[in-house]
């Protein structure tokens, strides 16, 4: 564990930095004082139990929800996202957990939604070719890109959503449970893809419940529990450590580690039953 503490910070520039981000839905505090850093060329895995606030955090970063409070810095500049448009313009691409595809439109239309080539006379041929290339990169098994999304399986839809996020050459990619519905080959392909975009110098935030996948690609593992940071781990952390941080079983090693790594917000005591 000692060597984990002395690990050098990632070398790439800081792409994204969140400080004390809170999000309140009525009576529910979905996020409380969440801090998160993502560097260029780094894969940060975001893990936590169901309802921990992972998807909410992703939506805040994607401009879907406005944070209740807190600051966000993107590539050194403080930013406020007024809507999804702002996030896309900054170069933040997102694969949402619910995929956010239009079932009535075909694959090409979904991949290019909002980014159509040639707005006054759509260039269908160029869009179709680019779609096939993106899908082939992901080894997608999609029979036809001219069928409506409704005719695709869950895994195929997920691949379309991932292809969509790659379209704009983003600086930061967020994938919310991207492999949940994928088969063995496609999961491997998505993990390869995550490594490829990392090697291209992009920042990646990946959410997954599969610890094996997380360990395979993540450079750091950020744990969320009940809407709060619950420690930063590394792929060589033991399963026990991770699981207890996720589930909140009172493990002294975890809490000691937590206190060393985080500036204490004085709220840890509340989290324990």
């Amino acid at each position: 564990m000692a060597d984990a503490v002395e690990r050098k910070p990632p070398s790439g520039e800081l792409v994204l930095s969140l400080r004390k981000v809170c999000k309140v839905f009525g009576a529910v505090s979905a996020l409380t004082d969440v801090d998160l850093d993502v560097h260029a060329g780094e894969v940060v895995a975001l893990v936590g139990d169901n309802g921990a606030g992972k998807s909410t955090l992703v939506k805040v970063l994607a401009g879907v929800h406005a944070p209740t409070s807190g600051t966000m810095t993107f590539r050194g500049k403080p930013v406020t996202l007024a809507g999804p448009n702002d996030a896309l313009a900054l170069g933040i691409a997102t694969v949402f957990q619910d995929l956010a595809l239009c079932e009535n439109l075909d694959v090409v239309a979904n991949i290019f939604l909002g980014e159509e080539l040639n707005p006054y006379a759509l260039d269908e041929v160029a869009m179709e070719i680019r779609s096939w290339k993106l899908l082939n990169e992901l080894s997608a098994r999609i029979p036809s890109v001219r069928e409506p999304i409704a005719s695709l399986s869950g895994g195929q839809r997920q691949t379309v959503a991932i292809a969509r996020s790659l379209l704009l050459d983003p600086k930061l990619i967020m994938l919310d449970e991207p492999t949940a519905a994928l088969g063995v080959a496609q999961t491997a392909e998505v993990l390869n893809l995550i490594e490829r975009v990392r090697d291209k110098g992009l920042g990646v935030i990946m959410i997954s419940h599969n610890m094996e996948d997380v360990r395979a690609v993540a450079d750091r593992i950020a744990v969320l529990r009940l809407g709060r940071n619950n420690g930063i781990f590394y792929p060589d952390s033991s399963n026990q450590e991770l699981v207890s941080a996720i589930t909140g079983a009172s493990d002294n090693a975890v809490s000691r580690r937590h206190e060393r790594r985080q500036t204490p917000h004085g709220t840890e005591a509340e989290m324990r039953p």
């Binding site: 809507g83 949402f96 956010a100 009535n104 909002g114 980014e115």
Partner: peptide, 12 residues
């Protein structure tokens, strides 16, 4: 018309 929220998230 198909999925208002998806359209919004696509930046429309």
């Amino acid at each position: 018309g198909g999925n208002r929220e998806a359209a919004r998230r696509a930046g429309i």
